[in-house]
């Protein structure tokens, strides 16, 4: 690996000032499961690696706050998958966290890091989008909160500005029962990046939120407020046509080695329909409880 300097700031102000000062010469390090691979293969060559795990204001907690479940920036995939509140109220997030890598990877990889790495195939992104998660980011000019849907630009690029760090993610608490699920398609059983990764959430007001990844430069969110997808009496064929229009933004890469664009689009329709159906079933059982 090419040599670099290592900094481990203790405070958030110090860290953001350092990152703002160094700009592209620095990369933040949390779990390292993406970063260290890229440091080794030379595709990233920062002069300084800034370890954020020593920052006193960053935490690894999953906390209930007014109207939100807040996930600290240092929370790992293992923490997410094992948390009873996440399992109960945000099952698609718990399910997707369990798909990330292996036990060893999940013990290090952070949810915030998975977002900041901004892979179009990030498995936890669709669930967070479907649940309407907000990003909490702190930089030299203070702290701001904004929807995760306004965070992704393209692979490896986010709307964080120079010196800004994601300090947490906030998911609104469900106001009513909800049915939700995460589904994915891979080339083989076992650990693999997704050819399609998708989350779907259905609420009793008839709204359906479908988010998907691996089908374009960034994870995408589509919302159906018409009630048509969430209606169990609407035939599948009709829903499939409707889904095709709703998910028309999907633009899978023609050059990816994982799957052809035609296959991905076909699987998006299949997983979309399955996701809607499963989310409706889960909503029904949540309402029966």
């Amino acid at each position: 690996m090419r040599p670099f300097e290592y900094e481990r700031p203790n405070g958030l102000a110090e860290a953001t000032a350092l990152l703002a000062d160094l700009g592209p010469d620095a990369r933040p390090l949390a779990g390292g499961t993406d970063l260290i691979i890229r440091l080794r293969d030379g595709s990233l060559r920062p002069r300084v690696v800034v370890d954020v795990k020593g920052i006193a204001e960053l935490d690894r907690d999953i906390r209930e706050e007014e109207g939100y479940l807040r996930i600290g920036a240092l929370t790992t995939m293992t923490d997410i998958a094992a948390d009873p509140r996440v399992q109960r109220e945000y099952p698609a997030l718990a399910e997707s966290a369990l798909y990330v890598g292996s036990v060893q990877i999940r013990n290090r990889a952070t949810l915030a890091g998975n977002m900041c790495n901004a892979s179009p195939a990030a498995d936890t992104a669709p669930a967070l989008l479907a649940y309407g998660a907000l990003v909490v980011a702190t930089g030299p000019n203070g702290t701001r909160r904004f929807p995760l849907d306004e965070f992704f630009v393209r692979s490896g690029v986010t709307t964080l500005s120079s010196g800004e760090l994601m300090v947490g993610l906030e998911m609104p608490r469900p106001m009513s029962p909800r049915g939700s699920i995460h589904l994915r398609r891979t080339r083989r059983r076992g650990h693999d990046l997704a050819s399609v990764t998708l989350a779907c959430a259905v609420t009793p007001d008839g709204a359906t939120r479908i988010a998907y990844g691996s089908l374009g430069p960034r994870p995408s969110l589509a919302i159906d407020d018409s009630g048509r997808l969430a209606d169990p009496s609407v035939p599948d064929a009709e829903k499939a046509d409707f889904l095709d229009r709703l998910l028309a933004d999907a633009t899978p890469s023609p050059t990816s080695m994982r799957a052809s664009p035609e296959y991905r689009l076909a699987m998006l329709r299949v997983l979309g329909l399955r996701g809607v159906k499963s989310a409706i079933d889960r909503l029904a059982s949540a309402q029966a409880r």
Binding site: Y6, T33, I36, I37, R40, V49, Q104, N107, R108
Partner: peptide, 27 residues
């Protein structure tokens, strides 16, 4: 493999298994 896929470098760090190829020594 040095990319966190094979697990040959697995050690237990503070009670958790990790791929030691994806942890810096300083960490």
């Amino acid at each position: 493999c040095l990319v966190g896929e094979c697990g040959a470098c697995t050690v237990i760090m503070d009670g958790n298994s990790v791929d030691s190829c994806l942890v810096l020594g300083v960490e």
